[in-house]
Design a protein around this nucleic acid. Structure first.
Length: 431
RNA sequence: GGAAAGUUGGCAGAGUGGUUUAUCGCGGCUCCUUGCUAAGGAGUUGACCGGCAACGGUCCGGGGGUUCGAAUCCUCCACUUUCCGCCA
């Protein structure tokens, strides 16, 4: 579920802690030594230019005011003489402003190249194999040799029609039918109810967003190719509800007492998955359109790691209630997303494919996203705006959950529906 | 799709070239009053950048321009609202 974002570290923090930034990013296998040095150099130059420009602007402002007074008092000659003085100052300001704008772009371009700093809890490592399993739960069922993969079960019980989806749209857009469709609806309701009970406010967001929103969460400009783009109206289909929900708080200063903000949203998610064809795309394993319930929190920085644990606990509760065998991984430096400070992935075991499937990714972004979003809260003591911490996680994404449910719960009588879902879908067996 | 009007601080809403340092109000905050009492009075009130600070600079939808000086004039763009048309 990881979807790379593209936000940024605070400049002043980099300036004050260059060694720390370099050391921490080494864990993400990122050599920041060059960029950090350049940023500090450019940033310093930028500040020098601003100081100079500000000083000249102050003089100009003062002069303009005086000229106004002279005209009013009829001292036309004095005024015209003063006018001539402004010419040179204006030229200097123009030159400095241009230089400032250019260097500002340079700093920004360097700044956005730096990934978020990983938390100290992040394990060393380069790839998925280096992720650390921190917890496992549930029992892997002992299925007979007659076990079927979910795409065959979907066809056998007429739950999901992949070919019809191809006819209507294309690969990766399945059609859910009958009990297959009702199971989808039941899962969505179950996940939303659980989130509501955990204190999350339910949001029903637009499924299309404008470029400003795509930019706010960082899909743009870097990941443009991953989103479906409606060029006629310049809108993007959302790849996750995280985009509209997080953007609710773009350019917002919250009151301290409003924290924590806890939002949940169901949405269809659309991903082009460009370049990811090949293995692991069979059946429900990787789709262009899928359903997901997302949870998002905006919190005071002092409690964000506590919140992360709470969110992991929430997701763990869901997979437990569904009776699926699962494991929780703490992602290593090399496997984390660009924006995350600490990420836990949830995987469920799909017993016919005999594979662990990622069904959730829960991350603390600390202030990395909030910096880009200009999402702040007003500190109760100082009354000044402070960058908030943001976290989000899938709770949960449906397709792989369905895959695992179908495969793990198959019996000679049919597919047994987990008890928690029965009130939502109205049946306990697909037979 | 056609036409018109708009976009100013948390909200509302003035401001058509120079004490605008953006009016007044509401809301918020602080204090006072507690015989105007489901009230009254006084004061205060944004963000961003630089600076230890004093302070300076920037911001009136966005970009460009005119001017000694722009919320105000010119220009391009975006968005919103209303009416007409269409329509779940």
């Amino acid at each position: 579920m990881t979807f790379n974002l593209f936000n940024m570290l605070n400049l002043r923090f980099i300036q004050e802690n260059p060694e720390l930034v370099i050391r921490k990013l080494r864990k993400k296998n990122f050599d920041a030594s060059g960029i950090v040095g350049q940023i500090i150099d450019r940033y310093q130059r930028k500040n020098e230019i601003q100081a100079k420009a500000d000083q000249i602007k102050a003089e100009l402002n003062k002069l303009s005011k005086e000229i106004g007074l002279m005209f009013r008092e009829g001292k036309t000659d004095d005024a015209n003489a003063a006018k001539e003085q402004t010419v040179e100052l204006k030229n200097s300001v123009k030159q400095l402003d241009e230089e400032f704008a250019a260097i500002d772009v340079q700093v920004y371009e360097l700044q956005v190249q730096l990934p978020n700093l990983p938390s100290d809890l992040v394990p060393e490592g380069r790839m998925a194999e280096d992720n650390v399993v921190i917890r496992t739960g549930g029992a892997i069922p002992d299925l007979k040799n007659t076990r079927l993969p979910h795409w065959e079960l979907a066809s056998k019980y007429d739950l999901i029609d992949f070919e019809l989806g191809v006819k209507l749209t294309g690969a990766g857009f399945p059609v859910y039918k009958g009990k297959g469709a009702r199971l989808q609806r039941a899962l969505i309701s179950f996940f939303l109810n659980e989130a509501q009970e955990a204190g999350y406010l339910e949001i029903q967001p637009p499924l299309m967003v404008n470029a400003a929103s795509g930019f706010g969460t960082g899909q743009l400009p870097d990941k443009e190719g991953q989103m479906y783009h409606v060029t006629e109206d310049d809108l993007y289909l959302i790849p996750t509800a995280e985009v509209p929900v997080t953007n609710l708080y773009r350019d917002v200063i919250l009151e301290a007492k409003e924290l924590p903000v806890k939002n949940t949203a169901y949405s269809a998610c659309f991903r082009r998955e460009a370049g990811s064809y090949g293995k692991d795309v069979r059946g429900l394993n990787r789709l262009h359109q899928f359903d997901k319930v997302e949870i998002v929190q905006i919190v005071n920085p002092s409690v964000s790691y506590q919140t992360l644990d709470e969110m992991v606990g929430h997701v763990e509760g869901l997979v437990k209630k569904l009776g699926l065998p699962y494991r929780i991984l703490r992602l290593c430096g090399g496997d984390m997303s660009f924006t995350s400070a600490l990420t836990y992935d949830f995987e469920v075991f799909s017993a016919a494919q005999e594979k662990w499937l990622e069904v959730s990714s829960v991350s603390n972004f600390e202030s990395f996203q909030a910096n880009r979003l200009k999402l702040r809260y007003r500190d109760e003591q100082t009354k000044k705006p402070v960058t908030a911490h943001t976290l989000n996680g899938s709770a949960l994404a449906l397709p792989r959950i369905v895959a695992a449910l179908l495969e793990n719960n198959q019996t000679s009588n049919g597919i047994v529906i987990p008890e928690v879902l029965v009130p939502f879908c109205g049946f306990n067996l697909i037979g």
